[in-house]
Amino acid sequence: MENANQIVKTMGADVWDGDPELIADHDLLHRVQAFTNREARLLDTGRVREWLDEMIHPDICYVIISRQLRYIEERRYSPPDSVFIYDDDHGALNARVEQQLHPQNWRVNPHEAYVRIGTNLEVTKGSAKDRLFVRTNWHLRRMRRQYEIDDFIYSRHDELVITPDQGFKFVKRFIAFPERCVQGRNMTLFL
C-alpha cells in the first residue's frame, strides 16, 4: 500500500502541483474538449460498451482514492493514508461494464439517469511525446428510482494517448475523491 502522495506521482497527477506550461493550440484544445464531451455523453446515456472499447486504452490505469484524515504536520505515524476506491485495469473495467449491461443487474432496471457537467479544462504535455495531461472539474449527478439523488463533485486528472489518426484514448485516470465519507451511497458509476 502506498501513501496518497506517492500515488499522485505514479499517476503523473503531480504535474498539476505547480504551474505547468499549458497548451494554447486551439485546434488541439478543441479536439480534447470534444473528446471529453463525447465521453460524458456516452456515459450519461448508458453507452458504456462503446466508451470502453473506443475511448479507453488497453493499458488503462483507472484510480480513485480516498485519503484518511491526518494532521498536516503528522510525522510519527506512517501507515498509508490512502484507500483505493478504484484501482482498475482494462479487465476490471470490462467486468464492471459487463455487470452494468447484464440483464439481471437489478440496480439499473429501471434505468439510472446521469448528468455530467465538466469544466476548467487545462491541457499540458504528457509523460511522452504522444501523450497529454488533462485536468478537469466535474459535477456528476445520479438520479434513480423515485427519490434518490447522489452527487459526486471532483477534480479529474487524465492522461491521453494521441492515436495515429490524431484521435485520443484515456490511458490514466486519477481522482483523489474529496469526500472522505462518500455520501452518495456507492460509486458504481464511472467518474
Binding site: M1, I85, R107, T188
Partner: peptide
Amino acid sequence: RDIYNGVHGTFGTAGYWEADDND
C-alpha cells in the same frame, strides 16, 4: 494487494456486490 483490490472491487465503496445490496 490482489486481495485488497478484490475486496474493494466487490464490497468497497465502488464494489458492485455492495451496490447490489444497497437497494
